[in-house]
């Protein structure tokens, strides 16, 4: 499952590492947008397979942030 940016912003924090197991609603990353640190929550339970962004990186709306697997 892909987690994508719902709006543009800068990756302020990455809260998980590849291999971490997460539950639905867990905080995966923090995206700074319009000067607000908004948490990106996990859409479902799963394991973090791939993180596509780095801290400080600008992402546009729709950009791939990370990928979750079983």
């Amino acid at each position: 499952m892909e987690v994508r940016a719902e709006w543009p912003g800068v990756i302020a924090e990455i809260r998980v590492s590849v291999g971490d197991r997460v539950s639905a609603e867990d905080e995966l990353l923090v995206l700074e947008s319009m000067k607000m640190l908004t948490p990106v929550l996990s859409p479902a339970a799963g394991a973090v397979q791939h993180i596509a962004v780095e801290q400080g990186q600008f992402v546009d709306e729709g950009a791939l942030l990370l990928r979750l697997g079983d």
């Binding site: 719902e6 709006w7 912003g9 947008s33 319009m34 000067k35 607000m36 908004t38 948490p39």
Partner: peptide, 10 residues
Amino acid sequence: DPMAVGGSLD
């Protein structure tokens, strides 16, 4: 909702 687009009006 400040958790969506920082609450800005889109």
